[in-house]
């Protein structure tokens, strides 16, 4: 299985478009949104200034991009092309394919988190304790597994033609409504209520709690674990269904 993981990683690192959108793009968005903000104004209801707030949002967004896009589109396309069938004729266990995809996405998501942190620290002077930086990387990286599972589920649900629009709708929907692009504090109340239950909102909230020097809120941790279980369960079910079909 290691050989497939290695090759999937090589391949992900070779894909310039994929690298741009998951590693460079979140930092560009960070600079566009928080670039001219002043450091003393707090984002309503958070106790963080815009730069610190958006740093976590964009790191989460980058990780989300890497794992969601990396899994869903590749899996749907390779299912359709017959590569998945070909792999089933090898000794590779069934879950090996999905694990290799997720591992390669995780390798790309790590730099996408770190690059946003470096850009935020250098250009906006975001300063945190060492444990906070490490905890942030750990929480955002681990939390991205939830969306990796969602990507796998979409990959097994959608056909090769439909996968891109479906992924885009889910991706932008979750990013914007979950408050990754703009703080959800600015949303009307009904929308804020919806947002607070989205996995992306809980995901960014993990990091924002760490920035304030706190442990993540129990509700956010429970939410993200629950979403992970639902997505992973759905992915496993769809995977098994697909296996019986062809």
């Amino acid at each position: 299985m290691n050989s497939l993981i290695k090759l999937e990683i090589t391949r992900a690192l070779r894909n310039k478009k994929f690298l741009f959108f998951s590693v460079v793009y979140p930092s560009v968005l960070f600079l566009l949104i928080a670039g001219s903000s002043d450091s003393s104004t707090k984002v309503a209801g958070t106790g963080l200034n815009l730069a610190a707030f958006m740093m976590v949002s964009m790191a989460s967004f980058g990780a989300l991009t890497a794992v969601l896009m990396g899994n869903s589109e590749r899996i749907a396309k390779e299912r359709e092309s017959g590569w998945v069938r070909q792999l089933r004729l090898t000794t590779l266990p069934g879950r090996g394919y999905v694990l290799a995809k997720t591992a390669s996405a995780a390798v790309v998501s790590l730099p996408s988190i770190v690059v946003v942190f470096v850009v935020a620290a250098v250009t906006k002077g975001v300063r945190l304790d060492a444990w906070q930086w490490l905890a942030l990387v750990g929480a955002i990286w681990a939390g991205s597994l939830c969306f990796a599972a969602l990507g796998v589920a979409i990959g097994y649900l959608a056909t090769g033609d439909a996968v891109r629009p479906i992924t885009m709708i889910v991706y932008f929907g979750l990013s914007i409504l979950g408050g990754l692009w703009f703080p959800s504090a600015g949303f009307p109340e009904w929308l804020r209520n919806i947002a607070s239950w989205l996995p992306t909102h809980a995901y960014a909230a993990l990091g924002q709690a760490i920035e304030l020097g706190n442990a993540p809120h129990a509700k956010d941790v429970v939410l993200i674990v629950a979403y992970f279980l639902v997505f992973a369960g759905g992915a496993a079910w769809l995977y098994r269904k697909d296996t019986l079909k062809a």
């Binding site: 050989s3 090759l7 359709e80 017959g82 590569w83």
Partner: peptide, 20 residues
Amino acid sequence: GGLMDEVTVAELVELACALH
């Protein structure tokens, strides 16, 4: 039977050998 794209022929054959 589809093939993995964005990898070279040699890399793909090496993968097949590694999985055998």
